[in-house]
């Protein structure tokens, strides 16, 4: 087996603020194969978005990658000069953000933005760039793409706008698309359409996908592998269905039990007490220990090692493996 497409090792991203050092991402490692769909799940403040930004070198000061390496197709991205990173961004690694109203420029027509995206990396004529834009819009299911090209973002509905953002991300057939909560702002019926299309597009073009979300169900219908993040670290990783069927980390278990679908209607849900610790002052041992019902002395002192196996987890008191 050759080197994976993307190999992240020991990544730590920190923000140096007046209040102290915010450890947004601590010691995150994972790899991504060509064409694979990877789900990255966590609650707000778990570091999942910052992980995505770090991959693209989009962490702005006072944030910086403090440690670790990100190898993409044989090149090291950490410390790579900005011009080289720019040549990769959008061309080989693209990103789709949560809110398409924030990512699309409201004063430029969609066509202008798309031709800019094409010509940023490929020296082609305007007409050719336009043709590629039409093709990309058609591929994401926007009807009458030729005419819609002259429309402005506000003339599209939320779902259509997100399709435009996806079309822009797909326009160079990148190796990886990082999608940060791309369907969170959308209605369920539109979300189902986008999920369906993203999966087809990824399959057809061989693009690998990192799908960042807080919603376990969405990720489970899409991703082959699942990473669960809590307070900046990966607490569990493995094949999606396996992790969800037999979670080893108490936090993963707690997340699953919190879903309203798991308890009979009207009955109390299993809740995780408390809330996530501040990333400014993480507890010394396992970050989940203060909320964990299995926590003991050792959890408050030592950061648990990553235990590898069919699914990997970081816990001193893992939940037993099902037969």
């Amino acid at each position: 087996m050759s080197e994976p497409l993307l190999q992240v090792a020991g990544l730590s991203t920190q923000f140096h603020t007046q209040a102290g050092v915010v450890k947004a991402v601590s010691d995150v490692s994972f790899s991504l194969e060509r064409g694979q769909i990877l789900g990255l799940v966590g609650e707000s403040g778990s570091g999942k978005s910052v992980t995505g930004f770090s991959l693209l070198g989009l962490v702005d000061p006072p944030g910086r990658i403090a440690e670790g390496s990100i190898r993409f197709d044989g090149q090291e991205l950490v410390g790579m000069p900005q011009p080289d990173l720019r040549a990769l961004r959008g061309k080989r690694i693209a990103m789709v953000f949560q809110d398409p109203m924030m990512t699309l420029n409201p004063v430029l027509s969609v066509g202008t933005q798309m031709t800019l995206a094409v010509r940023a990396h490929d020296k082609v004529s305007k007409q050719m760039a336009r043709d590629r834009a039409v093709e990309a819009l058609t591929r994401v299911g926007i009807p009458d793409a030729g005419h819609r090209l002259d429309a402005y973002p506000h003339q599209f509905s939320g779902g259509m706008r997100q399709r435009v953002a996806i079309a822009i991300a797909m326009i160079h057939s990148p190796d990886i698309i990082i999608a940060d909560e791309p369907t969170t702002a959308l209605d369920v019926s539109i979300q189902a359409q986008i999920l369906h299309e993203m999966r087809e597009l990824a399959k057809d073009s061989g693009t690998a996908l990192i799908w960042i979300s807080h919603d376990l169900a969405t990720v489970s219908s899409l991703a082959e592998r699942l990473l669960v993040m809590y307070a900046g670290t990966i607490v569990e990783e493995g094949p999606t269905a396996r992790v969800l069927r037999n979670p080893r980390h108490p936090y993963t278990r707690g997340l699953l039990d919190s879903l309203p679908a798991t308890a009979p209607p009207g009955q109390n849900l299993q809740q995780i007490p408390g809330s996530m610790p501040s990333l400014l002052a993480l507890p010394p041992g396992c970050a989940f220990a203060p909320r964990c019902s299995f926590a003991s002395e050792v959890c408050n002192g030592d950061v648990p090692y990553l235990v590898t196996g069919p699914s990997a987890f970081r816990c001193h008191h893992p939940i037993g493996e099902a037969k």
Partner: peptide, 27 residues
């Protein structure tokens, strides 16, 4: 029916190919 079909469900089987049946069009 379409709305209930659109809600993603937790998938617990390995390699299950989840069939998504989105409602066509928009409101």
């Amino acid at each position: 029916r379409a709305l209930l079909d659109s809600v993603p469900k937790l998938v617990l089987e390995d390699d299950a190919l989840v069939e998504l049946r989105p409602i066509v069009g928009e409101i």
